[in-house]
Design a protein around this nucleic acid. Structure first.
Lengths: 194, 194
DNA sequence: ATCAATGATCTACAATAATGCATCAAAAAA
DNA sequence: TTTTTTGATGCATTATTGTAGATCATTGAT
């Protein structure tokens, strides 16, 4: 049942994309967490009613698509998801840049901070893969801690290293991947909510 | 479970559009006829695997669509179905016209046949609703019988009355329905298979 | 260090899907 | 007219989902 596995994966991906835990989704959908765990792992052959409730909670809907329309539909699904992803990524990157600016102001004259800010700006001009989003979030969080003085300035070096790592990974993947889907999605500007 | 009912209806509609009986679909899909009957009437809350097998046999696929992409997807589904329908309808109408031509040649000089042919040509210029397709098919079949001499020429009158009935129904529905979805679908020309 | 969150796994039970026949009533075909 | 086809319904049985808890192991946060 490849199609059943595909549906399971779609559900899991959508949940993760929304940053929901299984327990939260359980509350939203009315399907118990233990069952959601089994569903996501492809361990049960779900009934339509259960699928529809979970999908609803994930802002999705179940459709039967004629084969002839399938590629067009797949393309719409992909582009809708990419849009959501790229908006989210842009938000996180903007937050990271703001944090770097704030830190630079707070620790004016610190060469490490200036370097970090410069690197972050550089990073914002590179197309990053969707999986980087979590790491960017973590970096923003760490910068917030530096701004409020909750961590030692010595951790700046760790942050800088992580930024460099992200950059190197993106550059490396860009070299070895075909010209990028996420590049064009990431470069999409504006906010064309329908 | 409105969504579940919608899925059931989609399955039934698709089956009927392909002119399959439940027993034939049962053979194609591996799901027993008695179960298909229950499914189509919304009497069971189907498992994904069963749905996928039936959909496959009906040249359809199950997709999870993000809400933001839904209207675009619905529009593709509708237009794909309308294309299939209009092509099918054009085929049947062409067959009917050919049969009328053949009959006119075979029974040259018969006033009834000439009148019938004229009426059929007139009908082909009217936008007919999708549900007329079955009746058109039946008419074409009857004309074939007249050509081969398998029925009495006296049944010409019955055929003529049916053609008139179809015409009157279409005209009547056109008057009382908003300007037509099926008009534009029917008027689609060409054969733009992707 | 402890506590909280997370996903995975288990249990027992009730409800229901799914299956494979058979049959019926109505409609269609011969 | 009879026969065939069609969709609906019934039956008995098996397998599975779904539920509601509880708990575990791991990870992350404090």
């Amino acid at each position: 049942m490849n199609a059943v596995i595909d549906i399971s994966k779609s559900l899991k991906r959508a949940r993760e994309a929304k940053g929901l835990s299984q327990r939260t989704l359980a509350d939203l959908s009315g399907v118990p967490q233990s069952h959601i765990s089994k569903i996501e792992s492809g361990g049960v052959d779900l009934r339509i009613s259960s699928l529809v409730e979970i999908a609803l909670a994930l802002d999705m809907e179940l459709k039967l698509v004629p084969r002839k329309g399938l590629s067009a539909v797949n393309s719409i699904i992909r582009s809708t998801q990419a849009k959501a992803q790229s908006k989210s990524m842009l938000d996180v990157m903007a937050k990271l840049q703001r944090a770097a600016d704030q830190l630079n102001t707070a620790l004016a004259g610190d060469r490490g901070v200036a370097q970090l800010r410069s690197r972050i700006n550089e990073l914002s001009r590179i197309s990053l893969p969707p999986e980087s989003e979590g790491k960017l979030k973590a970096l923003a969080k760490q910068l917030q801690k530096l701004i409020t003085g909750k961590t030692e300035v010595s951790s700046l070096q760790t942050v800088l290293e992580e930024v460099n790592r992200l950059r190197n990974e993106a550059v490396h993947q860009r070299d070895s991947e075909p010209e990028g889907r996420w590049r064009s999605a990431y470069s999409l500007d504006g906010d064309d909510d329908a």
